[in-house]
Design a binder for these strands. Structure first.
Lengths: 344, 344
DNA sequence: CTGTTAGCGCGTTCAC
DNA sequence: GTGAACGCGCTAACAG
């Protein structure tokens, strides 16, 4: 019988099944070294005692924790982070690996994380999502002693899964150019805490690249900073009060674009008639709102990262250490040819 | 020196500091039983060896895992679940407790969870969010052997933190009634997988209660089912093609309401001029889109649940085992007095 | 204040 | 195919 009123231990199961703890362990892990009859007896005994292997004990003995960490910046309820958590969890579950969330909110928490490294000796692998890590931080992570996988971020020598932000933004802007737009503004979200988004600058780069390619001089490449996801009105005002206002606006995220879209409606204007609007991400609401966007398959990216982490955690060698996931331009109802009023 | 090329152990630190492992343990946990000089020596040695206490070993020895589980249904990137993860994580971090996510996507995963109880012997407490648990499931959870906290769900005898869905919906509908609306439709999200949202039915109940209170007969209380968050057009059509179409629509979630709002705009109509629209939750986008709503402070609710879980996990007795968090009606731009065209 | 002695519950050699 | 013995790295109870 169990030692106390709490949980049954493997020894209890062993006693009940009339075998040794070693056999119980093997049977419960589905080892082929155990005869079917014995395995059945053990399984039955475990069932009757409501026994479950303790992950801590097992982890201590085997050195494998059965847990993968996910390091995130920013709010977990944002579209990107939420999607990532979802996708990673879905890949880990079938492998019977658990997910532990590490989140960094601000500079202070960030320093604490990299100082204490709470993931140390605590996860089998760590997925690092969308940070713009400093060199020092990156070096520090290397001392963690567990495999790392970078998500939406490229660093030489570290396994990573990422979209090509430059190409994505470039394709999006090319799409606008293809619709005849020449005066295009790019709206960039400026975080209060720099370093929390790896992609931001690269998307601006893609914009500039497409514009240059179309022969637009750098000084005519309008880049507007949004200091807040709710800065829609402000951005719209900035843009529309120019002497030659743009005919299209590309934002570096859908969440930002949606805010601008709302501002457009509030201003009594219409998209795309008065202004074409393009987002980035393919946020869950983008389709519902008809927002044109550069879709990044975040779920896929995160899923690949999880697979990579699982492989590394198991000590196996992955087929590819660096994976680039493609983006895709989706034109919905907020983009249209330039000067549609003349055409109508 | 460390045994292998991997991590330093407590014994290594003890050797280096010239003390016993017990003292190292005490020092690193900030026990007052250790003299300051000794503690300093230990801390220094640990630092030099990049030593960090292994949570597994510590958990095995102490019986305290330093980890709290969060059981969720539905997508983790949805507004509610995302906000909950955020808030719970924020409360656990200062207590140096980690967060492990358990997510159930469908019936099958649900059965697996309650059969295997992967949280067993694996977390110090479990927060169960927004499920409509069956009696059997609830009973099964009791056998888990760890403290439970129910979030947005009330069950006798179990510690819980929840909003009052009935009162929330009632207040919302009362608000519409106060604006002169009498023909009000309530849109309810019908999940493919029943049992994944505890609140749904209770919000309908609140609607009925407010309507009855205003003297509207039950057969005139229009309840429309939305089988999908994208069913905006469908819902709008159902509602507007009635012989006496409602002047206001209340949805049981903001995500649903936003879909309806988009449908309204697509139909060339305007809110609130042609139709008043009320949501529920106060989703991050609600404010941005001007959506009137019944706000539920999900972050607060989840935070309280986390605190409760921490208290219970530590074996302490909480001040209150049952907490009800208030909702608040926020009227923004999608609701207005009935028949504003006549008034204009 | 510090060291010693036992485990915590399981995995993993080895024998048999 | 199965069992015995040892160790994973730390905490806890008791001595001193």
């Amino acid at each position: 019988m169990p030692t106390s009123d709490s949980h049954a231990s493997m020894a209890d199961v062993a006693r009940r099944a009339g075998v040794s703890v070693a056999t119980v362990s093997r049977a419960l892990h589905g080892s082929p070294l155990v005869s079917v009859e014995t395995a059945a007896r053990v399984t039955a005994a475990a069932e009757e005692l409501s026994f479950a292997i303790s992950r801590v004990a097992s982890g201590l003995a085997s050195g494998r924790l059965g847990r993968i960490g996910l390091l995130l910046g920013g709010p977990l309820h944002g579209w990107f982070n939420g999607t990532v958590i979802d996708a990673v969890h879905d890949r880990l579950t079938p492998a019977d690996v658990e997910l532990t969330i590490f989140r960094i909110r601000d500079r202070a928490e960030r320093d604490v994380f990299f100082t204490r490294l709470p993931a140390r000796r605590n996860v089998d692998a760590l997925i690092v999502a969308s940070f713009a890590l400093t060199g020092a931080e990156h070096t520090r992570l290397q001392t963690l002693g567990v495999p790392l996988v970078y998500l939406n971020q490229r660093v030489r020598g570290v396994p990573s899964v990422a979209i090509d932000d430059v190409a994505g933004a470039r394709d999006g802007v090319r799409g606008l150019l293809g619709l005849g737009h020449r005066r295009i503004a790019f709206v960039r979200s400026v975080q209060r805490n720099p370093g929390f988004r790896y992609s931001a600058d690269r998307r601006v780069e893609g914009f500039r690249s497409a514009m240059a390619e179309a022969g637009v001089a750098e000084r005519d490449q309008l880049v507007v900073d949004a200091h807040d996801l709710d800065a829609g009105d402000e951005v719209l005002a900035t843009v529309l009060t120019r002497s030659e206002p743009p005919t299209a606006v590309a934002a570096d995220s859908d969440e930002l674009a949606i805010g601008i879209l709302a501002a457009v409606v509030r201003a009594g204007l219409r998209a795309p008639d008065d202004l074409s609007l393009l987002g980035f991400d393919d946020h869950a609401l983008a389709g519902r709102l008809g927002l044109s966007t550069v879709a990044q398959p975040a779920a896929l990216t995160a899923g690949e990262a999880a697979d990579l982490a699982l492989t590394l955690a198991a000590g196996r060698v992955p087929a590819r250490r660096t994976i680039v996931v493609p983006t895709r331009l989706i034109l919905r109802r907020t983009t249209g040819p330039v000067a549609p009023r003349a055409a109508a």
